[in-house]
Nucleic acid binder design. Structure first.
Lengths: 129, 129
DNA sequence: TTTGACGTTTACGTAAACGTCAAGTACATT
DNA sequence: AATGTACTTGACGTTTACGTAAACGTCAAA
């Protein structure tokens, strides 16, 4: 019924090595089913990998990503678990918002620098004319 | 005239260890002057450290940060250098923009999750009433 | 049937980013 | 003179995130 993927399918699609994918499994971030001894990845597994790589791009450690995946997968526990979950999410949100501010700052600085460079180039051209 | 800082001043202000600061110097990311054998950091050095830590938060390697600092410090070279510099900045910008999209996506997902959690809590409360 | 492409496990290697002593210097205070 | 505080330079240790090589299984095409 639903689509499945081999390890090299995912390796190609996301441009990571198979070693990397297996490493994530070693750390408990992925749990594909098996056909014989071969790994078989479901669409859900694929989404997990996508989330892992996104987390990595955002600078989270694989351990932290593991915790996030747990939270993401199983907001089904008790009230205490849920409120704890919400708390953790709020923390993440703050971290991410700070990170976005960092990015905006850097982008502004890059703008400034680029303008200065353009000006320097122009000045040179005018002198050459 | 201008303010200076000891290594522990900066250590306290930015909440990093002195070891970390010395490590950055080992890698050529900082170059404080000396009073005898002791390091003396200028306001400029302090800004450098701030930039380093920001880069770190954004997931850049210290090596990459070093390149960025060089670019940041010395856009004074030839035309070829300047255009190369602008090119590198464009790349950085794209990376950062992608990263910001990642963050926005994650923030949306966190919103969804939080709403779902809130709904689950509400449903429970209504049953309890 | 052998070659090739794909997969597997096991295990040691490695680069990055520091942590953690150890041992010493310099200067002020008690 | 001794104690304390802040600084210094090694140098080895540690964690994270994989790389890489070895040795092997499986199946299909030539």
């Amino acid at each position: 019924m639903s689509e499945t993927f081999s390890i090299s399918d995912l390796s190609r699609e996301f441009e990571v090595t198979t070693r990397t994918i297996r490493h994530y499994e070693d750390l408990g971030l992925l749990a594909p089913s098996r056909a014989g001894q071969n790994r078989v990845y479901s669409a859900r597994d694929r989404v997990h990998l996508k989330l892992i790589l996104r987390g990595r791009r955002l600078g989270f450690s694989l351990k932290e990503i593991g915790e996030l995946l747990q939270l993401y997968d199983a907001p089904n526990g008790e009230v205490s678990q849920l409120t704890l979950f919400i708390g953790k999410m709020r923390e993440r949100r703050e971290t991410l918002l700070e990170q976005r501010e960092d990015i905006d700052r850097v982008l502004e600085e890059l703008d400034d620098l680029e303008k200065r460079c353009a000006e320097m180039l122009q000045a040179r051209d005018e002198n050459a004319a």
